[in-house]
Design a protein around this nucleic acid. Structure first.
Ligand SMILES: NC(=O)c1ccc[n+]([C@@H]2O[C@H](COP(=O)([O-])OP(=O)(O)OC[C@H]3O[C@@H](n4cnc5c(N)ncnc54)[C@H](O)[C@@H]3O)[C@@H](O)[C@H]2O)c1
Ligand SMILES: NC(=O)c1ccc[n+]([C@@H]2O[C@H](COP(=O)([O-])OP(=O)(O)OC[C@H]3O[C@@H](n4cnc5c(N)ncnc54)[C@H](O)[C@@H]3O)[C@@H](O)[C@H]2O)c1
Lengths: 212, 212
DNA sequence: GTTTAATTGTGAATTCTATCACAATCTATT
DNA sequence: AATAGATTGTGATAGAATTCACAATTAAAC
């Protein structure tokens, strides 16, 4: 029985990308089918977890054999929305924004960076790696014209809250935030935070609080 | 009653960094005390969540008044292990590794990058932003000499698995992995993965699967 | 064709997290 | 020093996510 989309556990969605990567990797290795046990082994998940996750979307497995790899790649790409091209804008062309803008992995994964926003007069109204760089004041206009759907935020943390507010106002519904700022937002939007300091601090915590 | 460290929920630890940041921010704003309600409002958590998290480590609040901000900053820094300096190595001096190596936020947060590893002859045996760059073959020796405790991995995904294996072998117990590779590891170690593609794919999923 | 081995899909049980709701207690005011 | 208002800390409750465990099914071997 296929689950309705509302009831998919949040964490299942996060793991879907990992399964997709595992399927792609095993395809390259020349495999045709892969079992939930093997998928789990490669990612430190239990086999039951893998099966339950995948079964949310359909009965893809063949008992006694496993999952058809190329079929599942297509299926997961469709589920994740990778069957279309997403228009992405990067905010802040600094060290991190520059690295992200020149990152091939994004485009290969159907996330196409079509605009960069900054406020530095030395950077705006030029191109960077063939991507036009606009002044942030142009935000609404450019978003409308280019139909930008996803924003990646890499401005200094100080200006992050205001920048994110303006992104929400401009109607961009998906935000990936690399700054330490944490901004509450309406339910209709989706924002994910990648917090380097936070990750390192968790690591620090665990290194201390375990006898080794 | 103070919880023993074993029983701290995983998710509480992740939120600790966020609370710390909120305390610091409110200190800058000139506040002395802050309530669980206000902490929650700034981060989209319930007040009860905030109180329960903090109460894992002690009774820090004053009823009717809230939490003493500068006291809690010290307390959280100690809990998270930010009362000491951590020695960090970056693996892969490419676009991302370069951005990370020059990121001031790390050092300010007590994470001190003392070595960079790469394999490119054009990059090794020089310094980058005053940080020595070593060939990866020197890993064990340098780790021993510099007492490196945390590794940040930013090598190409293809070489990630082997690199992480060697980092584990060298006895570095904390790893922050920016590549898409996912590597199982022994319990005594702690590894966190930051997966850009995965985050964007979740965003893509949610943009599709919700009627807006 | 029959048997053996492998593997799925999934209810039930378990474990882990978050929220509720309120007594207890402190602050601030008069 | 009495009162009103705010806020904590936490046991009880509800909710989510994970794991267990096994019947059902298919593949592969003989
Ligand atoms: N550098 C890293 O490795 C790294 C890692 C993790 C997180 N971060 C976070 O990413 C953010 C950027 O870091 P960075 O090192 O690239 O900083 P940076 O100073 O190199 O770059 C910031 C860029 O943002 C631009 N900018 C400033 N205000 C702006 C605004 N209102 N709108 C648009 N652009 C604006 C600046 O002109 C500059 O080009 C910071 O919040 C930082 O905490 C950085
Ligand atoms: N560039 C980004 O914005 C970005 C964002 C998220 C994740 N990532 C991931 O980070 C990793 C690095 O990306 P990048 O864009 O910086 O790549 P890059 O090609 O610019 O840099 C990779 C560096 O690693 C070095 N290297 C190669 N093999 C090595 C080894 N075995 N040991 C040590 N160093 C080695 C190379 O010489 C090079 O300097 C990739 O896995 C990528 O998927 C990159």
């Amino acid at each position: 029985m296929v689950n309705t989309l509302r009831t998919i556990p949040l964490f299942t969605v996060e793991r879907l990308s990992i399964y997709l990567r595992t399927f792609r990797e095993s395809l390259v290795e020349g495999m045709d089918f892969i079992s939930s046990t093997e998928i789990g082994k490669r990612n430190d998940f239990t086999a039951a977890q893998v099966r339950k996750d995948l079964s949310c979307f359909g009965n893809f497995g063949i008992k006694g054999k496993g999952y058809n790899i190329s079929e599942l790649i297509n299926t997961l790409e469709t589920i994740l929305g990778l069957d279309r091209e997403w228009k992405v804008a990067i905010f802040g062309l600094g060290k991190l924004g520059g690295a992200l803008a020149s990152y091939k992995g994004l485009k290969n994964a159907r996330f196409n960076v079509v605009a960069i926003f900054d406020v530095d007069p030395k950077k705006v109204d030029k191109t960077y790696k063939n991507i036009p760089v606009y002044h942030s004041d142009m935000l609404k206009k450019v978003v409308r014209e280019k139909k930008i759907q996803i924003a990646i935020v890499a401005v200094p943390t100080d200006s992050a809250k205001a920048t994110i507010q303006r992104i929400l106002d401009a109607g961009i519904e998906g935000i990936l935030n690399f700054t330490e700022a944490r901004v509450p937002y309406p339910d209709e939007y989706i924002m994910k935070n990648i917090n380097l300091a936070g990750e390192l601090e968790s690591i620090s915590y665990y290194l201390i609080h375990s006898d080794r």
